[in-house]
Amino acid sequence: MIVVEHLSKAFRDYQRGWVSAVTDVSFDCRPGEIFGLLGPNGAGKTTTLRILSTVLRPTGGRAVVAGFDVATHPEAVRSRIGYMSANTGIYDRMTAWELVDYFGRLHGLEGDRLLERMESTFDWLQMNDFRDVLGSKMSTGMKQKVSIARTMIHDPPVLIFDEPTSGLDVLVARVVLQKIAELRERGKTILFSTHAMHEVEKLCRRVAIIHKGRVQAIGSPSGLLEQYDQPDLEELFFHLVDRAEKEKYDYDSARPVDETALK
């Protein structure tokens, strides 16, 4: 379960002063659901997901992940989520088995339980062929599988995927999407960000379209098309982006309310 309420994040920039990356974002995501975050590069998707994974602290609003507030119980949140993004790499000088084993241990798994999780994860992702291949020698597809295995090893109830298919060829992307769909069947709460419309159409029951750090529209893909009277998601997306560009935002309200939260 993920609940996000009025979440904001502002950074201090050397050249532009305070810059808000995310402003007043609210949504929720339930078990067995894939919730999509759709937006162009720099829309604030990654910042939102980083706040949910507790590596960034929000400057306004709150977020509860798996029953814990990200600001007050970051450790509890981290042990209950799996996070994977296009940027998260794998260690070059570790084999697939060693890497997944390492993260299992970091999550407190040991002995038979760890071994059992390892075997079932490697079977599920069909990774037994390259158990002992070093990260530097793996193909992109192998690396992506190892990343999913790392994300899944502790069987977390909440999964966060930040553009997991970006930069992948269609075959590998297809496998990744298949596995995410399988995870939904297992009843996981899944947050999925992308800038590819068809992925959203295929996977997500509900979606939030984000641009310039704000949620422009939220709802089921079909409901949104109806609401805005657009033929497909792509047109809807451009319509919303256009609308956002025309509006002039009052950036002052986007600034952090309490600077001490940044310290």
Partner: peptide, 8 residues
């Protein structure tokens, strides 16, 4: 990032 998101 993967290390930072782990429970460590």
């Amino acid at each position: 990032e993967t290390l930072l998101i782990s429970p460590a």
